[in-house]
Design a protein around this nucleic acid. Structure first.
Lengths: 146, 146
DNA sequence: GGCATATTGTTAGTTATGCAACTAATTCGA
DNA sequence: TCGAATTAGTTGCATAACTAACAATATGCC
């Protein structure tokens, strides 16, 4: 199997880099152009809170595949911008429950719009079936490693 | 099209996050366990230099899909660790040509080994045809956006 | 009840990323 | 040929990632 190692390296860079950085960069740019002043990382956290409010930080770690310090700091910044609030849980005082503020809620519709547009652009010409298969492969990679 | 926005958001997080962070983290861990003291980002640069020595920083930007400041700083760190050398080009004095040192060269075989093992583990149970298709989708996403 | 263990979140330190603004060298066109 | 535009690389600033070590709270077992 000649040059197997090189093909692996290229595959690695595809999975970890090419598409994701291009997509992230484009979405960030579209946010900025539209006057939406959050990072895509912040958006990826808000996204899960819009779906369900009052999650713990650990819940957000699981949902966004980040570690705890990353979530701590993302929430620090989101709190600074008054987009979310940390509320200590009454049942378990170790936990913070995270709630979206009114300001944070107002970002939901415009950013969903932008994300849809950007994803549609990114996936133009890709059949739905291929998208599903690609997603399944990435899920499998994740499951194999987690 | 109900909940289209949520499906897009999940797709986004798949493309940009799930598999790539898991894979990067695992590879970094395997490097560390084997006493290979470089980050995966440094590895991704060395990988291209092992294939072809003496590339310019701009070449490395194109090969690794990073911007110029990122490459500047990755090379700063790689130079500090004496894994590469910057040599000013004689033809065009704006350019640095990057060469792998003997120390850097010695990392090639063990890291290729580790990358292969990790990728094989990550892709276990995924048919080769699906891998190719997934790669093609990601390439298409990149081409659509670049 | 009390102590070992696990869980939740924070802090510190290093590396990396993106954008914007900058310097220096080269190229191109009037 | 000379000045504008382009290209290669660097620096400053803000945000984010991972690891390791830590504090506080909760759980479970004797």
């Amino acid at each position: 199997m000649p040059n197997n190692q090189f093909r692996r390296g290229e595959l690695y860079s595809f999975i970890t880099g090419v598409a994701s950085t291009a997509l992230a960069r484009r979405l960030q740019k579209n946010f900025k152009q539209d006057g939406v002043d959050i990072t895509i990382e912040q958006w990826s956290v808000l996204y899960h809170l819009w779906k369900q409010d009052g999650q713990s930080q650990q819940d957000l770690c699981n949902a966004t595949f980040r570690d705890k310090p990353s979530i701590t700091r993302l929430l620090d910044n989101l709190e600074k911008q008054k987009l979310v609030r940390r509320v200590a849980s009454k049942e378990d005082r170790r936990m913070n429950l995270i709630y979206v503020t009114e300001t944070g809620r107002r970002l939901q519709d415009p950013t969903h719009e932008l994300a849809n547009q950007t994803l549609n652009e990114a996936l133009e010409g890709v059949p739905q079936a291929d998208i599903e298969l690609c997603k399944a492969v990435l899920q499998r990679v994740y499951d194999n490693l987690k």
